[in-house]
């Protein structure tokens, strides 16, 4: 009898393992348009009201506990911010002239991103319920015109891109996810391009493909490069350089960038209604030559203050 029960238990386990492998295979082969993708989207839509309610309920409590655990760093952050306010007040006086200059340069460069891409505001309703991915879900979906691969920004800068869309929800792959790569340009003197990659939830990004001889300053701004067929329009602020070093004999600089957007606490974002593959200004295109673009004219993007140097 005991032998029979043991055998029955093993049969159940084998069946469950085989079912799991079948599901994995179906998902990997079918992609987001397959039957598993459909089940996922339906489940997310069905779960949406609960998700929104739970977010409204638990986010304040989470923020409170987060504030307690970060109280030490908050005090020093407060001091640094006071100093920053003083600096910014000085800069503000000069900003009027720079705004005008910026506008003129933008016209000259004819950047498709700045001030022309239609955006859609959305609320972040949940973060990934696991420890091995860095995603956030927003309360907008395909009904609102969101599609896969659209860039997402906050007031500070780039947040990520849309990787999955259901009727009422969309999922953002955040900059800190290791699967997320962004073509960037150093906005200082060098104008060098590279690629950032997330470091599995760390609050900095790794930058590759920067020549070891390139002069890079700490605090230097990094923006999306927007090279041809890029996933992001050019000029969206990504972050600032926090560490630079060059190892002897290395083929590239060791560069770390801290995202401008606070990705762990984002609450509202703007989705740029701009698709990967939309015609953008090719870097090889001489300034003045206008590439055809299907970008609709509407309210300006949140990050349109950023520009190429």
């Amino acid at each position: 009898m005991a032998v029979y029960r043991r055998s029955q238990r093993r049969t159940v386990l084998v069946l469950l393992v085989l079912t799991s492998i079948t599901l994995v295979t179906l998902d990997l082969r079918g992609g987001s348009d397959g039957p598993i993708g459909f089940v996922r989207r339906t489940a997310r839509d069905a779960f949406a009201p609960v998700e929104s309610g739970a977010d409204a309920l638990f986010r304040p409590l989470g923020d409170f506990l987060d504030g307690i655990s970060r109280s030490g760093s908050l005090k020093s952050e407060n001091r640094a911010l006071h100093k920053r306010i003083d600096d910014l007040e000085g800069q503000l006086a000069r900003a009027g002239g720079l705004d005008r200059e910026n506008e003129v340069l933008r016209k000259l460069l004819n950047l498709p991103f700045a001030g022309e891409i239609e955006t859609l505001a959305a609320k972040v309703v949940s973060f990934a319920p696991g420890n091995f991915e860095w995603t956030a879900t927003i309360d907008r979906g395909s009904r609102d015109g969101i599609e896969e691969d659209m860039p997402v920004v906050s007031g500070e800068g780039l947040v990520g891109r849309i990787i999955e869309v259901s009727d009422t929800r969309a999922k953002i792959l955040l900059l800190t996810d290791p699967r997320m790569s962004v073509g960037i340009r150093l906005a200082g003197v060098s104008d060098e391009t590279g690629v950032t990659t997330g470091l599995a939830g760390k609050d900095v990004l790794q930058v590759d493909l920067i020549d070891p001889d390139t002069p890079v300053d700490e605090e230097e701004l990094v923006v999306t490069s927007g090279l041809q067929q890029a996933r992001f329009p050019p000029g969206i602020p990504v972050g600032t350089v926090v560490s630079v070093s060059t190892r002897r004999g290395a083929l590239q600089k060791d560069l770390r960038v801290r995202p401008l957007a606070d990705l762990e606490r984002i609450e509202f974002v703007e989705v740029l209604l701009w698709k990967n593959g939309s015609p953008v200004v090719d870097d090889a295109t001489p300034s003045g030559d206008v590439a055809e673009t299907s970008i609709p004219e509407s309210k300006p993007a949140a990050a349109d203050g950023a520009d190429r140097p």
Binding site: L23, L26, D27, F47, G130
Partner: peptide, 17 residues
């Protein structure tokens, strides 16, 4: 839980089972 993650459906199911 796999329905809400970006891993292939069935991966958590296999490990949990």
């Amino acid at each position: 839980i796999d329905l809400f993650l970006e891993v292939p459906l069935g991966l958590s199911a296999l490990s949990y089972a």
